[in-house]
Design a binder for these strands. Structure first.
Lengths: 236, 236
DNA sequence: GCGATGTTCAAACGACTGTTTTAATCGATT
DNA sequence: AATCGATTAAAACAGTCGTTTGAACATCGC
């Protein structure tokens, strides 16, 4: 009986990441091809060539291309979850520090060192043009992250903002990171090369976005101090 | 001689938007198909069926699919430029008001009423995964807009920030708008439906992003007033 | 040993793709 | 009316796609 027809699609035993297992070799190759070219443009022949298996293997293990795609998205994001686990903070860590580290981690994940991993590119495709695999991706991966950000913001503002307002602020922070990942090529055309390398890389960006958020919330020094505010600083 | 081989590809005379002209009918249909399905998945047969012309017309007028795509992107963004011209402000308009209107216009363009026009979707594809048509799009459409935003921010901060810092702040503002357009489906999954309709539509969003920016720059009241700041308010 | 079962392979199928060909049609000029 | 270029139409081309086939191969229990 073909594996993709069995009751338990994923083998119950085994780590399922054995490089010699054709199934995971196909999943990995498929993920990279889908990430690079998209669903339509990626071909089963190329995927199988990259995985070193016969074209018939895809239908044997996954049934058809559509189900291979869905499985590869799930596989990619499970792998990514294992690669970069949620940071754990010691109790008593200042919320401001948590926020900074959260933004920094998000940017590092999205932009990474040099070329971002194909797993992120694949997930980005799902975000930009959702398919069947999207809902699962959101529930398992994106929603918990966003909830963590909202929790940090809640702690930061000590209950002064409603959950709705917190979500909106959270989306503002996510958006500032997101644009660099999704529209990175256009960003590179809008700002000079040296400026990109000095100001628009993860670390400086995390600092900027954090400072921008803290100042907007009234918890840090504004980016540009207007003259009227000087009086306050004198008093403080 | 086939039109696409002639020296002047666009007819020198005529408005070129006559609905009876097969050339513009193809361009319009192609733009919508490309916007909906992407370059690879869109088929010449579907495009021609939508335009009401024979399949051979594409090769007759444009040579091949690739050149049709490039021309359709240019056509779409020229049409969009004509649809929503840059707002002109009277001299003496406060910079804060300009910023608010600029953000509002950008959001209205991106999100629009209901479904955004296919022209925007097509351009968004170029931003997310640039092809040959991208550079032209950036130079003619995006760069001038971004320069206008930076100019407003410069006026707002009265020279207190360097051009590099202004560009970074500008990118933060653009990112907050961009995420709603590019990742709108995921946003809809992260925030409750009623909250989307009340807080995440163009007008309220423009107000939020403007206020967020002004507060971050130190020109408006912070979103959350911390206790230490109360002293200032008492004094003021 | 030997079937039985799970897996791999080369080859082919039918459908669809972008593109080209060839002939028919139209419109204006002489 | 006849001619000639510009345009349209139907059909076919060569290639690639996802998918299927049927036989070969491997691996195991007995």
């Amino acid at each position: 009986m073909a594996p993709h027809l069995r009751s338990s699609p994923t083998p119950v035993v085994g780590p399922a990441d054995d490089a010699r297992d054709p199934r995971v070799r196909i999943l990995s190759a498929a993920g990279q091809e889908f990430a690079e070219h998209g669903y339509e443009a990626a071909t089963i022949r190329d995927i199988c060539a990259a995985a070193g298996v016969n074209v018939a293997a895809v239908n044997y293990y996954f049934g058809d291309k559509r189900r291979l795609y869905i499985e590869s998205v799930k596989h990619a994001h499970e792998e990514r979850l294992r690669q970069v686990p949620q940071p754990e903070w010691a109790t008593g860590t200042p919320a401001q520090e948590k926020l900074h580290q959260f933004i920094d981690t998000m940017l590092e994940r999205m932009l990474g060192a040099g070329q971002p991993p194909w797993q992120v590119r694949l997930m980005m495709r799902e975000v930009l043009q959702p398919t069947e695999a999207c809902r699962e991706l959101v529930e398992d991966y994106i929603r918990p992250h966003f909830a963590m950000l909202v929790a940090i913001l809640d702690e930061l503002t000590a209950g002064m903002l409603s959950q709705a307002e917190l979500r909106r602020v959270g989306m503002s922070i996510v958006g500032q990171c997101f644009v660099y990942r999704a529209a990175g090529d256009v960003v590179s055309m809008l700002v000079p090369r040296d400026e990109i390398e000095s100001l628009h890389t993860p670390k400086p960006l995390a600092q900027h976005i954090t400072r921008y958020a803290l100042a907007a919330l009234g918890l840090g020094t504004p980016l540009a101090l207007p003259l009227v505010r000087v009086t306050k600083d004198v008093i403080a």
